[in-house]
Design a protein around this nucleic acid. Structure first.
Length: 532
RNA sequence: GGUCCUAUCGACUAGCGGUUAGGUCAUCACCCUUUCAAGGUGAGAACACGGGUUCGAAUCCCGUUAGGACUACCA
C-alpha cells in the first residue's frame, strides 16, 4: 500500500508526467501490460473534436448542448469539428433520425469541417460504412497480443462467481487470459465461437478530465471487456475509440454518462498505440447532464427535450443555443445574453461547471425573447413569415401590401413576444377584412357597459381626420373619449381596441389603426356598433 | 455489492484563501403606461452537515449525508 502511494507520487513528480496517464502497477500478472502511450498535447489549430450521435429518435437538447460545446471549442481554438454518425445498431437506428440530426445542426448553424455530406480525409463518416476498417484493426490488436478469446457465456461467468464466492455483480473474472491450447480446442470442438476481450492493464488509471480535474480508477475497477462479438461483429466499445483514433480526435467532449468508460477507452487506446493504429491518447472532458423535472436526466419522453418542438414553438437558434450554453457555462458574472460569435470567442472547456443543470423552460423563454428583440426588423419579418404561413394568416407568397403591413408592425411586435409562434395570433387581425373580423370571447368579457357608445363617438371623431396618423388618431380619441366623455384612458381605448382587432391584447392600438388605414379602421368601428 | 462523479438563493450560475456572497430567470411591490409586453426602481431568497489545515474557508483536505452515473456479447 505504501509502495503504491510512493509509486504514484514519484511518477507525478517525474518529468515524464507531462503525460496525463499515471502509472502505478499493482499485482503481478504474467501478462501484465502497462499504459505507456502518450496523451496528446495538441492545442490551437491542431485540436480535433467530434460530435458522433447515434441516429435514434428526434434530436435531444442534451445532445445538441454536447454538439454546441464541441463546436465552440473547435471555433475557439481554431481546430476542426468532425461530424460522424454511429449507426451500427440497425434495429434502433433510422434514416429519418439521421436526416433530423443533419437538419437540426443546419438549422442551428452548427457547421462542421469534416463529416457527413461535407466529406474529408477520413471518409466514410458513417460507421455502418466502415466495417472493413474494423476488421483490420481487430487483426492488429490480436497479433499484438492485446485481445484474447473468451468462450464463457454470461451464465457460465455467473456460475463461476457463485462457485468462487465472488460477488456476481463484479462480472467477468478474466479467467481465460491464459487459456491453454487444449481448453481452447475443447471449446472449439463443442462448436463454440469466442468473443474477443481486451487484456486490461493491472494498474490504476488516472487522467485529467478537462472539466473535472484528475480522476483515478483503481486497478481492478472493471474486468477485461468484450470488443468483438462471437462471429466477429465489433462493438461500440471498439469502434468509437477506433474511429476517434483514426480520425485523429484530440479532445473528446461528451456526456457524463461516459465518464466511467473512460479508463476502458484509455486502456484500449494504449493497445491501439502499441498495435500501430493510433499515436496518442486523447484528452477527455465530461459535460454535466441536462436534467428535467425532479432529479432525473431529461429524457426523450419530456417534450422540452425535443429540439424540433422548440423550433415549432418559435425559438430562434440564437436564443436556444444561448440558453443551452448557459447550462454549465457562463460568459461572465453579470451577463446572460450573448451571441454565437461571443460564445466562440470566450468558450473555455475548463470553465464548464461539473454540476448537472436543470432545463428551465421559463428562463429559456426569457433568453429567446431577448434574442428576438435583438433581431433587425427585416430579419424579424423574414423569420416570422413561415409561422404566419403555417398558421394560415398569409397564404403562399406575401403580397406587397402584406409585406408593407409586416414591416410596419415588426418593431411593435418584436417587443412583446417570447417565441415566434406568438406572432400570428397577435397580428392576424391586420390581414383580414372588416367584414371577416371575429371578436374574441375574452375581449368581449371585459367591455364596459357603454362600449357601443364609446365606439360610435370614437368613429365620429375619427371621420374628420385628414392625416390618419398615430398622433392624429391619439389626439382625436383623447379629445372625444377622455375629455369629451370623461372616460379613463383604460375604459376609453379598450372598446376601440376590441372593435379594431377583436382581441384583448394587440400591438399598440393607434399604430395599428394607422397601418390599417382610415377606411378599414372606420369600417371596423361601424361593424362593431352595428353588431351590438 | 463495486467504481466513479456531484453538492452556493425555488432554477441557472459568479466566486478559484480575506466580498455587505454578485448577476439572470421566476416570485412580490412600486414607477411608467391606450391593452399586453418591454423598460425602470426595490424586496424577499443560498454556501447540505461535521471535522481538520490556516491569522482567516463557500473556496484546500478528510469524513458523513444526499443525489446521480457506470457496472451488457446496447450505443
Amino acid at each position: 500500500m505504501l509502495a503504491l502511494k510512493l509509486a504514484t507520487r514519484s511518477s507525478a513528480k517525474s518529468p515524464a508526467s507531462a503525460s496525463c496517464i499515471t502509472q502505478s502497477p499493482r499485482g503481478s500478472s504474467k501478462n501484465m501490460t502497462l499504459i505507456t502511450a502518450p496523451t496528446t498535447t495538441a492545442t490551437g489549430s491542431d485540436v480535433r473534436v467530434r460530435f458522433c450521435p447515434s441516429p435514434t429518435g428526434t434530436p435531444h437538447v442534451g445532445l445538441i448542448r454536447t454538439a454546441l460545446f464541441n463546436w465552440a471549442y473547435a471555433r475557439r481554438t481554431g481546430g476542426k469539428f468532425i461530424f460522424r454518425i454511429e449507426d451500427t445498431d440497425a434495429s434502433r437506428d433510422s434514416e429519418e433520425s439521421y436526416g433530423q440530426l443533419v437538419e437540426g445542426l443546419r438549422w442551428l448553424g452548427i457547421d462542421w469541417d469534416e463529416g457527413i455530406d461535407t466529406g474529408g480525409p477520413n471518409e466514410p463518416y458513417r460507421q455502418s460504412e466502415r466495417g472493413h476498417i474494423y476488421q483490420d484493426v481487430i487483426e492488429k490488436l490480436k497479433s499484438s497480443g492485446h485481445l484474447y478469446e473468451s468462450f464463457l457465456t454470461g451464465e457460465e461467468i455467473e456460475q463461476r462467481n457463485i462457485a468462487n464466492s465472488r460477488a456476481v455483480q463484479l462480472g467477468y473474472d478474466n479467467s481465460e487470459r491464459d487459456l491453454s491450447e487444449e481448453d481452447r480446442q475443447a471449446y472449439l470442438s463443442e462448436g463454440r465461437k469466442p468473443a474477443l476481450r481486451l487484456r486490461v492493464p493491472d494498474q490504476d488509471i488516472t487522467f485529467v478530465d478537462l472539466v473535472r480535474g484528475e480522476i483515478t480508477f483503481p486497478a481492478g475497477s472493471f474486468p477485461d471487456f468484450v470488443l468483438v462479438r462471437p462471429g466477429g461483429a465489433p462493438l461500440y466499445t471498439l469502434v468509437n475509440p477506433v474511429d476517434d483514433a483514426l480520425m485523429g480526435v484530440t479532445h473528446v467532449l461528451r456526456g457524463e454518462d461516459l465518464l466511467s468508460s473512460t479508463p476502458r477507452q484509455i486502456a484500449l487506446y494504449n493497445a491501439l498505440v502499441e498495435a500501430g493504429v493510433a499515436t496518442f491518447i486523447p484528452r477527455f472532458g465530461h459535460l454535466p447532464f441536462v436534467m428535467g423535472e425532479g432529479n432525473k436526466k431529461l429524457s426523450k419522453r419530456n417534450p422540452e427535450s425535443n429540439l424540433f418542438l422548440h423550433r415549432d414553438r418559435g425559438f430562434i437558434p440564437e436564443g436556444l443555443l444561448n440558453y443551452l450554453a448557459l447550462l454549465g457555462w457562463s460568459i461572465s458574472a453579470d451577463r446572460d445574453i450573448f451571441s454565437l460569435d461571443e460564445l466562440c470567442e470566450n468558450f473555455e472547456i475548463e470553465n464548464v461547471n461539473p454540476n448537472p443543470a436543470r432545463f428551465d423552460q421559463k428562463k429559456a423563454d426569457a433568453i429567446n425573447a431577448a434574442h428576438i428583440r435583438l433581431l433587425t426588423d427585416e430579419d424579424f419579418v423574414a423569420r416570422i413569415l413561415p409561422y404566419l404561413q403555417s398558421a394560415g394568416v398569409i397564404q403562399g407568397q406575401p403580397t406587397a401590401r402584406q409585406l408593407e403591413i409586416l414591416s410596419a408592425v415588426a418593431p411593435l411586435t418584436k417587443e412583446r413576444v417570447i417565441v415566434l409562434g406568438d406572432v400570428p395570433a397577435m397580428i392576424e387581425f391586420l390581414f383580414v377584412d372588416a367584414a371577416d373580423l371575429k371578436i374574441d370571447e375574452d375581449a368581449l368579457k371585459q367591455l364596459p357597459e357603454n362600449a357601443v357608445e364609446i365606439v360610435s363617438v370614437a368613429k365620429a371623431s375619427l371621420e374628420s381626420i385628414e392625416d390618419f396618423t398615430t398622433d392624429a388618431i391619439h389626439q382625436a380619441l383623447s379629445d372625444s373619449l377622455v375629455d369629451g366623455l370623461g372616460e379613463k384612458p383604460r375604459n376609453a381605448f379598450g372598446p376601440v381596441r376590441t372593435a379594431i382587432s377583436g382581441r384583448r391584447v394587440t400591438p399598440p392600438l393607434f399604430e395599428c389603426m394607422e397601418i390599417l388605414g382610415k377606411e378599414q379602421s372606420l369600417a371596423r368601428l361601424e361593424a362593431f356598433v352595428q353588431s351590438r
